[in-house]
Design a binder for these strands. Structure first.
Lengths: 117, 117
DNA sequence: CCCATTTGCTTGGTAAACTTAGCATGCAGC
DNA sequence: GCTGCATGCTAAGTTTACCAAGCAAATGGG
């Protein structure tokens, strides 16, 4: 098991978030005040960004720094799979969703993770 | 105004905590798995430790990593829509989902709640 | 006193984070 | 066709986090 596997995960996570925000690599790099080649390398898992860079990226994407630290494995706690139930329960608790929409989302989610309840 | 001033604050903070715990520099260095010269330099504000080192130090001192990140100025911002974003962030953190699946789920979710970011 | 141990620090080096300049492709308008 | 601009990437360099070895001052026991 490569030590840098979780790094790659972090990079993919950043790239996904960037694309969800419809930002180009250069745009995000400017917002986060890092060079674009460096961001490129981070997203491909070649380097692990410092916490400050993570913080800037988080800010640029309007996400919490905690989210990124967690993804980067920088927050000590529990590698528990409570994350799985977190998706379903947060869906169930979201007041903006109708019951039908909740059901749809959970179905899609379970299809992805292969849960069979 | 020197850029390293807040760094010095962090170093002093670490040193204070270490002394409060009655640990020698070398002892804490061992616990945190860093070299003792390096810890010495960190405490005097010469270097800014990575988040991982901070995490190890926090653990060794039985303090929360958040405390240190905050002290290091790595955590300040953005405590906003915590509840409203619960669905999205839990999706993002779910290790069983591929980036593509996360993207799909979030798109569906945003479609439902009518978010436009 | 002497020796051992512990304290924090300096020096010199390596590896990795991060930058600047530039390359290649793709797409818009002319 | 070109031209210009945006995209992401590579190559080569600088900076800095971090380590191993070792040094000087203090402490304490014999």
């Amino acid at each position: 098991m490569n030590d840098r596997d979780h790094l790659k995960g972090l990079g993919e996570f950043i790239r996904t978030q960037r694309e969800l925000a419809n930002l180009s690599l250069r745009q995000l790099a400017d917002l986060a005040k890092v060079s674009n080649p460096y961001l490129s390398q981070v997203e491909r898992g070649l380097y692990k960004p410092s916490a400050e860079v993570l913080k800037q990226i988080a800010k640029a994407l309007h996400l919490s720094a905690e989210t990124f630290y967690h993804q980067a494995g920088l927050l000590d706690e529990d590698v528990r799979n409570e994350a799985a139930d977190a998706v379903e329960s947060s869906i169930k608790l979201d007041p903006r969703l109708t019951p039908e929409q909740k059901e749809t989302l959970i179905r899609v989610y379970r299809g992805f993770v292969g849960v069979d309840r």
